[in-house]
């Protein structure tokens, strides 16, 4: 905040400098780690402040959900529990991270309207806050998978490093998602509801409750679902495998494309966000 130079609207100032400012915002925001990590952790702590168990509730409710779903759907699909439950736990926890990033991303700016109108900090700070709080929730949830995996003796071993890298890539995508959706949703207030419905549908058509092999003649349907690939990116190594080449290719494509589109949109509309919230 040492110095700021005002933008004219697009056209008033060369488009190149809008790009620089958008990129500068993303970089400067990242550097404010102590701020957004505090905001993110505070959000989680507050949600559970008045309960005795605290954030352990996150873990517990995930455990109960996975247990109940595993019990019902395992029987429904005629799957042996020792194979199905780790699969379900891994997929469900990873899905929780991805859908959380999408859903919270839509509210990244509108939830922080007070701060945005009061203090001129990089706007991306509010997106990093969302990403950080979702990482914290994920850290609580992954415990459920580890317990299940340990119980059935299928702990991932050194493959866990691939899973860590996978989570990092998911978070990297979470940042552009938050910037993009946060901006759109600041302008159009019905988008969060639309996104929520879509995420709900995606949960059922993405193989989390069911295995991809159960749907042999719909390979294209799966292959075109980017969410499937992002789940696989983390789930496959958690279950002791490696993600397929197609998965890696799709993830790389979505990451690059998403960032490109987002930076273009952010460069154009970033200055408008304060007007919209």
């Amino acid at each position: 905040m040492r110095e700021h130079v005002g933008t004219g609207a697009p056209g008033g100032i060369a488009a190149g400098s809008q790009w620089q400012r958008a990129l500068g915002d993303v970089v400067a925001g990242a550097a404010r780690f102590s701020l957004w990590s505090l905001l993110g952790s505070k959000e989680i702590r507050q949600r559970y402040r008045r309960s005795r168990l605290g954030p352990l509730w996150v873990t517990l409710s995930m455990g109960v959900t996975v247990g109940a779903l595993g019990f019902v759907y395992g029987a429904l699909f005629g799957q042996p529990l020792e194979a199905y439950l780790p699969f379900l736990a891994a997929g469900f926890v990873v899905w929780g991270l991805i859908s959380g990033l999408v859903l919270d991303g839509t509210k990244a700016f509108t939830d922080s309207d007070g701060m945005i109108l009061q203090l001129a900090a990089p706007l991306s700070v509010h997106v990093y806050r969302v990403v950080w709080s979702n990482l914290l929730i994920f850290a609580h949830n992954i415990v459920v998978f580890l317990i299940v995996a340990a119980w059935f003796g299928v702990l991932p071993g050194w493959h866990v490093l691939y899973a860590v890298a996978g989570v990092a890539i998911v978070l990297l995508n979470g940042v552009w998602l938050g910037l993009f959706l946060g901006t759109v949703c600041a302008r159009f207030r019905d988008v969060p509801q639309i996104v929520a419905s879509v995420v709900q549908i995606l949960f059922f058509i993405t193989p989390i409750l069911w295995r991809p092999e159960m749907l042999p003649d719909r390979a294209l349907f799966l292959g075109l679902n980017p969410f499937y690939h992002f789940v696989e990116l983390v789930r496959a190594p958690l279950l002791g495998g490696v993600p397929e080449a197609t998965t890696l290719a799709v993830v790389a494509l979505v990451t690059l494309g998403g960032w490109l589109v987002t930076l273009m949109a952010f460069a154009r509309y970033r200055w408008r966000i304060a007007y919209w919230v």
Binding site: M1, R2, E3, H4, V5, G6, T7, G8, A9, G12, I13, I116, L117, Q118, L119, A120, W271, A274, Y275
Partner: peptide
Amino acid sequence: AGIYAPCSGTIHVQ
């Protein structure tokens, strides 16, 4: 304060 960017015109603050 740099919260609203002007729609037209320029501002320079040091």
